[in-house]
Design a protein around this nucleic acid. Structure first.
Lengths: 147, 147
DNA sequence: TTATTCCCTATCAGGTCAATAGGATTATAA
DNA sequence: TTATAATCCTATTGACCTGATAGGGAATAA
């Protein structure tokens, strides 16, 4: 599940990317990205703590991306907001933790499948960068697969 | 995120699959699958309403799968327990719903990526069946991709 | 007719999510 | 040096979701 927070963060970062290196104030970002202003502040704090954006305080202050938009992936942003991509902790690399009700992890078929799901998800989200999203080439990916 | 409920459901269905066509009581399933008994009852009710299992009441009653284990996919079970696989409703086929804060869905890059994620997830979960999980061939799928 | 088993409704505590409030701190411009 | 504009910090809120249990009703085999 993609949280509101992650969705907002993606929109905010895209907005910053559109503004190149110019500082942008929270009010302006909030308006452009349609994110509640106070909520956006907490989001930007998280992004700052994880090195995605930089800030400058005081009059004429604001936020910028701290690295080029083409090295920031969608996966980066979503991990910061929502945590690991893996559907279950025991299938996670960065946040591995065993299930406390699992008698034999090595033989767990569920974990096995979820590892593949994790790979599938990160395969998509770590390929796409913020700059990819800005110059989104309309693809026709409607498939027969259900969800 | 895979909920406890979905995880329990998978284990329960696997247990029923191991028992072939024999009726199995909730207590036995709960013990074998290590699922809290009362919680399991609600899970089995859901599975029954969606045609995955059948039940018989009274003395000597119990549950069985209502179709062969090799036509029940992991995706089936997870959808019943946790809802659509898509990370966001606007990217869902079976449960599509527009974001109420989206000015132009056709131009939404986020939706575009999430559609690909949905395809990636269902690509994994709809290929694996319950019987696949029982005869799990230990694969070496540890990858470099992070999560 | 009784023991066993599934079935139904209701409830619960704890946690997470989305969002806001209210002000402290810092920096610029006048 | 002061007014102002901005980020930053702490705390709180209501609504909803999750995992789980309680208590009994209804069917059925022995």
């Amino acid at each position: 599940m993609l949280s509101m927070k992650a969705k907002y963060a993606l929109r905010a970062v895209m907005e910053l990317a559109r503004n190149e290196d110019r500082l942008m104030q929270t009010r302006a970002i909030a308006k452009a990205a349609e994110v509640p202003h106070k909520f956006l502040e907490t989001i930007l704090t998280d992004l700052k703590n994880r090195g995605v954006v930089s800030s400058k305080r005081g009059v004429m202050g604001g936020y910028t991306l701290s690295k080029p938009a083409d090295v920031i992936t969608i996966g980066d942003i979503i991990r910061i907001m929502d945590g690991p991509l893996a559907p279950i902790r025991c299938a996670s690399v960065s946040a591995y933790q065993p299930c406390d009700d699992c008698p034999d992890e090595a033989a767990c078929a569920i974990r096995d499948v979820m590892k593949d799901v994790r790979i599938a998800i990160s395969g998509v989200l770590d390929q796409r960068t913020i700059s990819d999203m800005l110059s989104a080439p309309r693809r026709e990916t409607d498939s027969i697969l259900d969800d």
